[in-house]
Amino acid sequence: MEETIELEIFRYRPDQEDRPTFQTYEIPFRKDWVVLDAINYIKDQIDGTLSYRWSCRMGVCGSCGMMVNGVPKLTCATFLKDYYPDKIRVEPLAGFPVERDLVIVMDDFIHKLKEIKPWIIRREGEEKPIEEGEYLQSPAELAEYKQYSMCINCMLCYAACPVYALDNTFVGPAAIALAQRYNMDSRDQGREQREEIIASNEGIWECTFVGECSVACPKSVDPAGAIQRAKVGSTIDWYKDLLMPWGGKKR
């Protein structure tokens, strides 16, 4: 007899119901299947009405984050065999409003991403012309920020963050880590501009270092570390301003 596994999936159709329900599907169990394969099987073979996001199925596009048994996961990198024979519960990422079934509303994250100015900022007149070639950056300088540049915007870190769950005004792990990514880039001069958001009360200071963002992160970005390091940086600034109020501005 064929082995099977059950998936209990969060359903919500805004134009048909006021509150979500769970629907259970029984599907064949295959050792090399990931949770996304199972969901695709359901969509193709059992129930075409199930909605969710996915694309690259190789852990880099960041679309397919969901809660698997209450833990945020990229479903393309989460294997059924790690749960078999138990039932698997699949829900949309925690902390976000649900648009439909397993699809969350991303507006808040997109807004925050833009707000932290994730692009290279150069001081007026210090832009290097293209004809003069690349900015030099040593491998060591690259290594300073490389880790923080690996964020795929999958938002598992937000779903893992209890602070964000309780208060959506928190700028949140991925956005702060990305701000750090640019702050620590030797080509960038925009840290002071980003501090307006990052060092505000809704920024790094909301974080109590639960650390689950870094556990959830599938790309080892370590947003929790980024946030704590940003706290150290802002604290140094604060004392500099206190001790040298006349000249601390130029960082």
């Binding site: 958001i197 060092a199 505000s200 009360n201 920024g203 604290t235 604060w238 004392y239």
Partner: peptide
């Protein structure tokens, strides 16, 4: 968003 005085408390 307001400029924060958290650094003093956080450093302590």
């Amino acid at each position: 968003m307001s400029k924060s005085n958290e650094p003093i408390f956080w450093s302590l």
